[in-house]
Every structure is written in C-alpha cells, then in structure tokens.
Amino acid sequence: MSAPERIPPRGLTAVDPLDLLTSGELTVRGQIREASNAVLFCSVAYGGQEADCVYKPVAGERPLWDFPDGTLAQREVAAYEVSEATGWGLVPPTVLRDGPFGPGMVQLWMEGDPSVSLLALVDDEEAGEGWKAVGLAQVDEDRTALLVHADDVRLRRLAVLDAVINNGDRKGGHLLPAPDGKLYAIDHGVTFNVDDKLRTLLWGWAGEPLPQEALDVLARLDASLAPGAPLATRLAELITPAEVAAVRARVGALRTSGRHPEPSGQWPAIPWPPV
C-alpha cells in the first residue's frame, strides 16, 4: 500500500478538509504543553491524503466559572461556523468528532509566516504610519511601551468577527499570517458569552465607522441568524439558545451603531499576557 499523500493546509485536494478532519484516522504525534488545556498535535489521514491538525479533547478542558454551559470545543466549532458565514475564512476548518481521548475539537494545522509582524511595542507616543495604537503595555517593572497592531484589512475583519462572537481572549499568539497572504485566527474557546467579555489586542479601530464591507457582512449574518435560518440552526447545536440570541443581538447592535465597539471600561480590555 502506498503512503498517504501529504497535503499542505488549505491546499487544493480531492478530499474536502472537513471530510478529512471528520472521517480521517487521527494519530497523536505530541502535546502542545504551553496551552492551559489539553492540546494534542496530530496527523489525520483519509482517502489517501494526510494533514497535520490539532485535537483538543473535552476531557482535557479546565472548567470555567463564567462559562458554565457547553464546552470549549463546541465554542471553537461555533466560531468556525460564524467565520465561514462571513465569507472571510479567518478560522481554519474545525469540526467536532470522537478521537483517541474521547470527543473533542479537531482543527486543521496552520503554519504562520514568522517573517510577518502584525504586533509591535514602540517607545514613541505615536505608532507611525501603517500601525494602530492599542494602549500602553507593561514591558517590565521599569518600562512601559505603546502596543500597536498593523492597520491591516485582515485584522480589521477579525476585529469585527471577534465583536460578533464576543471573544474574551484575542492574543497575539492567536494570529497566524500564512505564507500565501491569508490570515488565520485560532483559540476560540472563550467566546459566545451572553455578557460582554470582549478582550482583544485589536482595539486600534475602536469607535471608528465600520467599513462598508463589514456592514454588508453583518447584514448577511443578521439574515442567517434569524430563527430557523441555517446559521442559527447550526449554532443551536453548539451553544445555548441564550447565547445564540446574544450573537443575534450583537450583530444588530453593530449594524445600528455602524462603528467598531469600544472598551467598556469595566475590566481590562487587553488580555494578559498580550501574546
């Protein structure tokens, strides 16, 4: 028997990435120990093709007092479904399935391009052209610096997506600029809370008018979130009815304001550590 053909993430293949992730044979290759929950690096093979992926078993999740319902894995998949509904493709293909350690989330592995910098710390008060200021960040005991992110349309789209899914933990390490020019975002377990939990590094557009592209996407999301509509039906399989209603309300609020959200001031707006 010939060895499976190794495929690059998001490459053109005869096997749909979702079919590969859902039906393929998972083989655990190692553990990503920096993560706070169990994250396993795996390969997945199906239909003569193979790819790398991440498997996060529900059994390895640590309970969160402010997310008492559902699982991190379900919210990761829900974030993928919303991302796909926007048409921006910001979240890698992600599925729920059984694995070697029980049910969990399986996501196609994406390699980031280390030569691309989307975040920076600068000592000057002004970020400079091409950058958006986020706020001051503590570098060490004696020094603070201005945290900035690139003024990039891909990041701006992600800022809108994060506002919709109520992302409570958008860190720099969750941003993967790919060699092909696309941007992928990972780690969406802390999302979809009914309370405002938005914490992110992408505040550079706070209060600014939303681009027309974003308004068009929000209009499509609004329609697809109507009771009985496809996205609403899919999300109801993954998160609670109250959480689905909260997604719908956030989309409506963004359309009404026509602006990027601003920090509430009720808690730290930037996650720690920021990367």
Rank of each mutant, 00 (worst) to 15 (best):
A3V: 14
E5Y: 12
I7L: 13
I7Y: 01
L21F: 10
L21K: 07
S23H: 13
G24K: 04
T27I: 14
Q31K: 14
E34L: 14
N37T: 09
N37H: 03
A38Q: 14
V39D: 08
V39C: 13
L40C: 01
L40W: 10
F41S: 14
A45V: 09
A45W: 10
G47A: 02
G47M: 10
Q49K: 15
E50G: 05
P63M: 00
L64C: 06
L72T: 05
L72G: 11
L72R: 10
R75Q: 00
R75W: 02
E76S: 07
V77K: 12
A79W: 02
V82N: 00
V82A: 01
E84A: 09
E84L: 06
E84Q: 12
G87M: 11
V91Y: 02
P92H: 04
P92G: 08
G104M: 08
G104R: 01
M105N: 10
G112M: 09
P114M: 09
S115E: 10
V116Y: 03
V116R: 12
L118H: 11
A120I: 00
A120Q: 13
L121M: 13
L121F: 00
D124M: 13
E125N: 12
A127C: 01
G128K: 05
G128I: 05
K132N: 07
A133V: 09
G135S: 11
G135F: 07
L136H: 14
L136E: 14
A137T: 08
A137L: 11
E141N: 13
T144I: 04
A145E: 01
L146S: 00
V148I: 06
A150V: 06
D152S: 09
A159C: 07
V160A: 13
A163Y: 07
N166F: 08
N166D: 04
N167Q: 07
R170C: 01
K171G: 09
A178D: 15
D180K: 15
G181K: 12
I186F: 13
I186S: 02
I186K: 04
I186Q: 10
I186L: 12
D187N: 05
H188Q: 03
V190F: 11
F192V: 06
N193E: 04
L198R: 04
L198H: 04
T200W: 10
L201F: 10
L201V: 15
L202E: 03
G204F: 04
E208L: 11
P209K: 12
L210R: 08
L210Y: 07
L210I: 06
P211V: 01
Q212Y: 04
Q212S: 14
A214G: 07
A214P: 02
L215F: 00
V217R: 03
L218I: 01
R220D: 03
R220L: 09
R220H: 00
R220T: 05
A223F: 08
S224F: 03
P227W: 09
T233M: 11
T233R: 08
L235Y: 11
E237A: 12
E237G: 07
L238H: 06
L238M: 00
I239A: 14
A246D: 04
R248W: 05
A249P: 00
R250F: 00
A253F: 02
L254A: 03
R255A: 01
P261D: 02
P261R: 03
P261Q: 06
S264L: 13
Q266A: 14
Q266L: 15
A269G: 02
P273A: 03
V275Q: 10
